[in-house]
Computed example of a mutant assay.
Amino acid sequence: MNLNLFDAEEPRRWREELSPGAVVLRGFALPVEGDILLELEKIFSVAPLRHMVTSGGFRMSVAMSNCGKYGWVSDRAGYRYDAADPDSGKRWPPMPALFSTLASEAAALAGFSDFKPDACLINRYDPGARMSLHQDRDERDFSQPIVSVSLGIPAVFLFGGMRREDKAMRISLTHGDVVVWGGADRLRYHGVLPLKMASHPSLGEHRINLTLRKAT
């Protein structure tokens, strides 16, 4: 299935390179935003959003859920991928074909062919919520990229270096933007600044972020 989400004749119009292995595809998800939101409703009915805790016992400001073969979870035991939702004991909802196709096509446009995600972490940010600088290190194969889809109110994405103390770029992300990073940039630190108060016609005072990965 080909979503034809990107204008192949003018790829630079919407493509912003952050570094050799990282790009922002502006508005890439807009043609299918309504379908994504419908799929999210189905997922949340089975695996509701919840605020997980860190290994140190701190409650995360971002509410989370998952779909796919594996889901990313956090608790006092640490960070990991699990095939089952710890709240229900049931397997996570299957990843919609739309999600995997969107991620595969975005990755291909960023130079990463044959990306087939098996995990999708879904984050909901309310005004004031944030994500501190971190690396995505819980996956087994670092040769696979990360694909991040933004929906709802704007956010400022922090894209840093290989050390937490490295200065981070600040990238404004709006509804429909997709960020892809991999290769030499796969383990860069990244995060999200506290969200400012705003409202979006489809999502109200929320930002939804889909982070698609190959966990195994």
Rank of each mutant, 00 (worst) to 15 (best):
G78Q: 08
M95L: 15
P94I: 07
T101Q: 15
A129P: 04
M95I: 08
D138H: 05
M131A: 11
L121F: 03
A129E: 08
R130Q: 11
L187N: 10
R164G: 09
R130G: 00
V149I: 15
H175R: 08
S150Y: 01
A103K: 01
L98Q: 03
Y79P: 06
S172H: 05
S100K: 03
F157K: 10
A168L: 05
E105L: 02
A155C: 05
L102D: 10
D87P: 01
A155F: 02
H134G: 13
M169A: 15
I122Y: 01
G191K: 04
A108Q: 11
W181Y: 11
A97H: 06
G128I: 10
V156T: 15
L121D: 03
E165K: 10
R140N: 13
A108P: 02
D118A: 00
Y81H: 13
P86R: 08
P93C: 05
A84C: 14
T101H: 05
G78C: 08
L173K: 03
S172R: 14
W181T: 08
F159A: 05
W92T: 12
R80I: 09
H175N: 14
C120W: 07
F142I: 15
Q144N: 12
G161M: 12
R124Y: 02
F159G: 04
A103H: 04
M162P: 00
